Simulated scan of single mutants.
Amino acid sequence: MNSKIPSLPILSILILLFSVSLKSYGQIGPNLGQTDSWMKSAVAAMERNDYESANGIFRNLIDSGLPLPEEMPYYFAETLFQLGQYDNSANFLNKYLELSGFTGKHYDGAKELQEKLEGPLHAIQTCQLCDRKGYRYKVCFSCDGKKEIQQDCDYCKAKGVVGCSRCGGTGMITKKNIFNIVEYFECERCSGKGRLTCPVCEGSLKEVSACKTCGGSGRLASEVLCDHQAEPEHTH
Rank of each mutant, 00 (worst) to 15 (best):
R59M: 12
I173P: 01
G163M: 13
E231R: 15
C164K: 05
E223Y: 08
L16I: 15
K105L: 09
C143N: 04
L113W: 06
E186G: 07
S100P: 08
N31Q: 15
K146Y: 04
L68N: 01
C130A: 06
Y137Q: 04
T235C: 08
S222L: 01
S217M: 03
C190S: 08
L99P: 01
R48Q: 15
H234G: 13
G160T: 05
R195M: 09
E148T: 12
D131M: 05
K146Q: 05
E112R: 10
F76P: 00
S37D: 12
D108F: 14
Y135Q: 06
M46F: 03
S217P: 01
G160E: 03
I15Y: 06
T213A: 06
Q82E: 09
D63C: 03
C201D: 05
T174C: 08
G218Q: 03
N177T: 06
P232I: 06
A44T: 12
D63P: 02
L220P: 00
N55H: 14
E202W: 04
D227H: 12
M39K: 08
V200T: 11
S191K: 14
L61E: 03
V182L: 14
F92D: 00
L80H: 01
F179L: 15
F58Y: 10
L97M: 05
I181R: 12
T79D: 11
I5T: 14
T35W: 01
E52G: 15
V43N: 02
P69Y: 07
I28N: 10
C167K: 00
G169A: 06
C156M: 00
K157H: 11
K176A: 09
I57Y: 03
E207R: 04
K23G: 14
S12Y: 12
P69E: 09
V162G: 01
Q27A: 13
T126C: 03
Q150N: 10
P120N: 06
P6D: 11
H228C: 14
K206L: 12
L80T: 01
G29N: 11
Y137F: 13
S19H: 09
S7I: 07
K95S: 10
L83W: 05
D63F: 11
S217D: 01
K133T: 09
C190Q: 04
N180C: 05
L66A: 09
K175M: 10
F141Y: 14
H122D: 11
P30V: 03
H122R: 13
D154F: 11
T235S: 10
S217F: 02
G218K: 02
I5Y: 05
D154A: 13
Y86Q: 04
D87K: 10
W38E: 12
E148F: 09
S41P: 07
G203W: 00
S165E: 15
